[in-house]
Simulated assay, not measured.
Amino acid sequence: MIGDRGLSDYSVEATGLTKYFGAFKAVDNVSLEVPTGSIYGVLGPNGAGKTTTLRMMLGIIDPDAGSSRLFGDQRPQAVRHRIGYLPEERGLYPGMKAREAIAFMGALRGLDWREGRRRAATFMTELGLERVIDEKIRKMSKGMAQMVQLIGSIVHAPDLIVLDEPFSGLDPVNQERLELLVKRERDRGATILFSTHVMAHAERLCDRIAIIARSQRRFEGTVDEARALLPMQVRYTPRDSRDAAGIAAILPATAERHGDAWHFAIEDADVEPLLSRITASGHGVTGLSITRPALHDAFVHIVRQVDAGFAADATCDAVQEALA
């Protein structure tokens, strides 16, 4: 049982991770804590530093500054048998059959070969992949082969599962299979850490997220906390739209009319006063929707702020150079 293995409150603790490739700073002072038993997403645009961060956490590459601990241990190699890792670069022996490929990957982590073959068949059957259990990798589609490699990464029942862009290249059916597998492993007690730039998966799966942009961590918290960075969006349709000036008077100054409906943003604290004004106004309600922005909207907002600040700094540097 995972609970008997002495896990701490955090399966992964990274402090001040920094990595240079030549003069380029790929990761800049990134700190993360991944709660044990949670699904944690590292989000960011392509090239933000997600993969480099994961590899430093796992001890695959050494940081130029900072440190990381897995299960409280600063020696990743000492706990490697408790980790399942799916790298961004996929790779399987094309001549192997799916069942043997999965068992082989499990054997590399100490799992008995026969038990690995048995678990492989169980996983693939439960995921609806039984028809390709004994098919060679070279005959599979890219998505099917990726699912085989994913199963091989977790067949030894690791405590920590690290998936680098696991949804990339999967069709919607296999994406759904992967989401199911992630949830089942979390329910088993495993900690899931994955990187992605597709917000829909993170919004459905993650207990907590970190957003990395321009090599730095720009946000850390729950999905709801990220969405709360932006105001709610309101669409209000009065029963009688003829008194446009009167309706505008009870709505925020930013409200815009589109046909019979009015659209505007509103903070949480202003919702109840708005409803009171609408009720008292006598204009009535034909339609009223108040929605929180999606994680995608929050992500774009954060990344654009970072890019705008980066561009402003670059402009200032250019001006200073010109004046020097």
Rank of each mutant, 00 (worst) to 15 (best):
L7C: 12
L7G: 14
D9R: 11
D9N: 12
E13W: 04
G16M: 07
L17A: 06
T18M: 05
F21L: 11
V27S: 01
P35C: 11
G41K: 00
G44V: 14
K50C: 08
M56P: 07
M56V: 14
M56A: 06
L58E: 08
I61N: 01
D62K: 05
S67I: 09
D73W: 06
D73P: 03
Q74T: 14
Q74F: 13
Q74A: 15
V79W: 02
V79H: 02
R80E: 14
E89L: 14
E89T: 13
G91K: 00
P94K: 00
M96P: 12
A98S: 15
R99E: 12
R99Q: 10
L111F: 07
R114A: 14
E115F: 15
R117E: 11
R118V: 13
M124H: 01
E126W: 00
E126N: 03
I133C: 13
D134C: 03
R138M: 13
M140G: 09
S141F: 06
A145D: 10
Q149L: 11
G152C: 07
G152K: 00
G152M: 05
S153M: 02
V155I: 14
V155W: 03
V155A: 08
L160D: 12
I161E: 10
D164C: 12
E165I: 14
P166R: 00
S168P: 03
N174G: 02
L178G: 04
E179K: 07
R184A: 07
R186D: 10
L193H: 01
L193W: 02
F194L: 11
A202E: 07
A202D: 04
I209W: 00
I209C: 03
A210H: 02
I211A: 08
I212P: 00
A213H: 01
R214H: 13
R218H: 04
G221F: 10
D224Q: 08
R227A: 12
A228Y: 05
L229W: 02
D243C: 06
A244Q: 10
A245L: 12
G246W: 02
G246Q: 03
A249E: 11
A249C: 08
I250G: 05
E256K: 08
W262L: 11
F264G: 06
I266W: 09
A269R: 08
A280V: 05
S281F: 10
T286D: 15
L288M: 11
S289E: 13
R292M: 15
P293Y: 04
H296K: 07
H296N: 13
V300Q: 03
G309I: 06
A314L: 12
A322G: 06
